[in-house]
Amino acid sequence: MHLFFYLPLVLPALAGLVARPFAERLEPRAATWLLTGVAVVLAGASTVALGVLVVAGLIRVPLVAVLGHWSLSAVQRGDPVSLLEAAGASVLLTAATVAAVRLVWRRVRALLAAGSEAACLPRAGEYVVVDDPAPDAYALPGMPGRVVVSSGMLAALDEGEREVLIAHERAHLRAHHYVFVAVTHLAAAANPLLRSLNGAVAYTVERWADEHAARVCGDRRRAARAVGKAALAAKHAPARNPATALGIAGLLRRGAHRRPAGSRSGLRQGDGLRGAGPVPRRVAALLAPPVPTVMPWGVPWLPLLALCALLASSGVCAVAAAHDIHLLLDPNG
């Protein structure tokens, strides 16, 4: 029984091993939904396990046992969790709760600010151009949401690339990509071992928007060129877009702006890109043929089996731990 308490806490560390294969090889929309769901399940299982550990420690406290009408001697004989373990779990659960509450508070404030900013932008309609020489473009959530593009970004792109840019940002807005990113952020706040899934979902929503833009403009090479040029243009621009916004430049981290390895048509993802940043990988994916929406032969089966085993183990262990504590507290229940 003791193992049941701890496996859901550490198993999420394995999620990072399967996140990238799914992010790279699955159709981006399917990958986004799958990885977000995995993050929610693993975060929920680890939270339940921490809660069970805390309860297992609390029932060993004489005052709590009296208030709960439990036999303290019977509890101490059947409870494998020490007070030290329960105290550590209490610290971790408190830290996770505080981090999650703070994140939700910041996100709600950011969404309200974004909605207010979207409502105050000039002109009616979804698409707004602001007079700013710094290249920038992003989708601003709100009611209604707005696609904001600076004059500097428009100047950096030609007419066809601007079409890609607008289609990309509209995909972010209409598919509510911010929700997926926010949910995985919340899961990572509950269990920091899930941060790799957070990064994977931030990548797949960009790929989702890239593929939508490529379909709209009908030219994958043009879409790849627009993504690369927009990212390069925004590389040295000051960050002015709100925290809630998603833009075509995506995650601008070190290595994201290196020249994509191989610029020929038919480039396979992963060829020379194993250590590349997200933007070169997105460009390479657009230069390759699109991933079919339904592709049972292309699913990474080994990572899929590993993921199923990971989810099943975490869920079963969390439920088993909670059930054992229930039997301990109510042996006749």
Rank of each mutant, 00 (worst) to 15 (best):
V40E: 04
E169N: 03
G247Q: 03
A119Y: 01
A320G: 07
H185C: 07
A124R: 15
G115K: 03
A318E: 02
P21C: 12
A13F: 07
V148Q: 00
G57S: 12
A214M: 05
V164T: 09
A213T: 10
L194D: 09
I325A: 13
N191V: 00
L72G: 00
V283W: 11
A30F: 00
A134Q: 12
R25H: 08
W297N: 07
P290M: 08
Y6L: 14
L302V: 15
G115Q: 03
D271Q: 14
R25L: 09
D210T: 11
S71W: 03
C308M: 12
P296M: 12
L251F: 05
T94A: 15
P290S: 10
R107S: 10
G262T: 08
A223L: 08
A15K: 08
N198F: 10
R29P: 01
E159M: 04
A86Y: 03
M1A: 13
P62M: 02
S71T: 08
C317D: 07
M153N: 06
V108R: 08
G247T: 02
L72R: 10
L310K: 11
A237G: 05
V40S: 07
R109E: 13
A95I: 06
A249K: 14
V283F: 09
V181G: 01
G315H: 00
V283T: 08
S263C: 07
L307P: 07
L26D: 05
